[in-house]
Write a protein that binds this DNA or RNA. Structure first.
Length: 502
RNA sequence: GGCCGGGUGGCGAAGUGGUCCAACGCAGAGGUCUGCAAAACCUUCAUUCGUGGGUUCAAAUCCCACCCCGGCCUCCA
């Protein structure tokens, strides 16, 4: 299997350090707000990576962190932090804020059918680990203390910034954030931020440098090492982390281990989901969440399919129409699978798609062996092709058409098609075999009719049709159409909600 | 300002020298089915790859210039 490595900016043959288990660390969210759909793209990517490794027979140890320590808010209000700000806005304790948005985040992942990591690791559970780590950095002479905190001296490690390809001379200190007085080098960053004498933070801890909070980059070095060791296989994150956050993490790792190795063999970054006005940004205020899509009647898995339709290293242009198109596509896929199911007797293998959700990182060898047992040669060919796309840096956009190829195959028996699709879906996570078309029709929050009202009108229309009173039947249909309901006479389901796209 | 990445049909998006003179999905068009409509299914849909030059037997794919877009420059997936 070949994966793009941001360290070399090349696709390289992947070999895990430990053949029995691949160790992955994924940078998680800061939980001061709902995740926007751009954030969520990162976890669809991570999940696809993990599922692909599992599909290829590798077990994974996957850690995702939760950043529940607030960091600075924005260019404007230096000194405030996002967690504190959210706390004030919502008039709630900062710990409640963290808890609330952590739950919301995990719920989003659940709705997107993102497999849970082997371990969730939360920053505030590791403050003392961070202090211990920082002291090692201090003893190694990699830090210096200022009025505002303990800083990392980036000249103390070899090749600082290799990940970014950005020459230090090109950096303009303070281009976006106010400069810190006394820093030795523009690229130096905070290891520990001291609380100001005047304002106590809700979240602060006593440390060798006084009360304060850890620098943002520290937690990832500390938690990845704690659970995955000083060397592990893959570290993932959004592309915005490539230039700063991950460079700083690497610097910390190097200073801590006294080695030039970055810590992870592979650094992988997903590109942004963008809209016409630029990247989706939490700090700019308005942004789309998964819940806001659901409120419009768009199923979360339509977003998953949307995210899968583009290679993870390409920018993905957001449009609600394209998203709605993916919902249609998903409905057609699910409908086609249901049609096949009606031709096939229930069988033991059908339990597999639902049971995969229990996985916390195990290889998919067992489920695949059940699904792919004694497939006809044509079926094996399709899966071979599927695999060729996966192992070339996760070419999911090229793998997706194989779903249609399988469904439309001229000679494969229905049961074989279903098992092939089930195996592919172990990677794609679209719930193709467990979902009904009706599951994908969500009532928009703003819909003017209730389900009961729709059902009543549907009955009226059917009675009118049976009585050949087509004027009444059409009248009811128009009424339903106007209320955002699509009719599909003689189908199962007989009607669906139309998503709201304006 | 510095650095990185990108501009492919109405939209999203594969493809980075010939076996693809451009996959796939959505939309559109025609058809089957249907009281009508929808759903479903079938067929169809870029002589062209931001613009202008160049290299080559051969370029969307390489080179140069220009235009436009996105990212990073210590909050961000």
């Amino acid at each position: 299997m070949r994966l793009f490595n941001s360290l070399s900016r090349k696709i390289e043959e992947f070999h895990p350090l430990d053949p029995s288990q691949t160790r992955i660390y994924s940078c998680g969210p800061t939980v001061y707000n709902d995740a926007h759909i751009g954030n969520l793209r990162a976890y669809v990517f991570t999940d696809t990576l993990r599922r692909t490794l599992n599909w290829k027979g590798r077990a994974v140890q996957h850690v995702i962190n939760i950043t529940d320590v607030g960091h600075m808010t924005s260019d404007q209000d230096e000194g405030e932090d996002k967690m504190e700000l959210a706390s004030q806005k919502m008039a709630r304790d900062i710990w409640q804020i963290a808890d609330h948005f952590t739950r919301a985040f995990k719920n989003d992942l659940l709705r997107l059918n993102i497999l849970r990591p082997t371990l969730w690791s939360t920053a505030t559970d590791h403050i003392h680990d961070m202090i211990a780590f920082a002291r090692v950095l201090e003893r190694a002479g990699a830090t210096y203390e200022l009025e505002s905190g303990l800083y990392f001296d980036t000249t103390r490690v070899p090749d600082y910034g290799i990940l970014s390809l950005t020459p230090q001379e090109g950096q303009t200190e303070g281009a976006r954030v106010e400069r810190v007085e006394g820093k030795r080098n523009p690229s130096d960053f905070a290891i520990w931020r001291k609380s100001s004498a005047t304002a106590q933070r809700q979240m602060e801890w006593w440390s060798p440098w006084g009360p304060g909070a850890p620098g943002w980059h520290l937690e990832c070095s500390v938690m990845s090492m704690k659970y995955l060791g000083t060397r592990f296989d893959i570290h993932t994150g959004g592309i915005d982390h490539r230039e700063i956050h991950h460079c700083n993490e690497i610097a910390q790792n190097q200073a801590y281990t006294q080695q030039s190795h970055s810590g992870a063999n592979w650094w992988m970054h997903n590109n942004f989901l963008i809209d016409r006005t630029g990247k989706m940004s939490k700090s700019k205020g308005e942004f789309l969440t998964l819940s806001s899509l659901v409120a419009r009647g768009i199923h979360p898995l339509a977003f998953r399919l949307f995210a899968l339709s583009t290679h993870y290293r390409s920018e993905l242009e957001f449009s609600i129409d394209t998203l709605a198109g993916q919902l249609i596509r998903l409905k057609r896929l699910v409908g086609a699978v249901s049609a096949l199911r009606r031709k096939v007797e229930p069988a033991a293998w059908m339990r597999v798609p639902a049971e995969i959700g229990f996985s916390s990182g195990a290889s998919f060898s067992w489920p695949r062996s059940i699904l792919e047992r004694d497939l006809p040669a044509a079926g094996q060919t399709l899966l071979d092709h599927f695999e060729r796309e996966l192992i070339e840096d996760l070419m999911i956009p090229r793998a997706l058409p194989l779903l249609d190829e399988t469904l439309n195959h001229a000679t494969l028996p229905p049961e074989a098609k279903l098992r092939i699709l089930a195996s592919m879906d172990l990677v794609l996570g679209l719930k193709l075999l467990t979902l009904q078309r009706s599951d994908l029709s969500l009532r928009p929050e703003r819909a003017e009719l209730s389900v009961t009202e729709v059902e009543t009108l549907m009955t009226q229309r059917q009675q009118a049709r049976r009585a050949k009173d087509f004027a009444t039947a059409d009248q009811v249909r128009n009424r339903l159409n106007a209320a955002g309901v699509e009719l599909m006479d003689g189908q199962e389901p007989a009607w669906e909600w139309r998503p709201i796209l304006e």
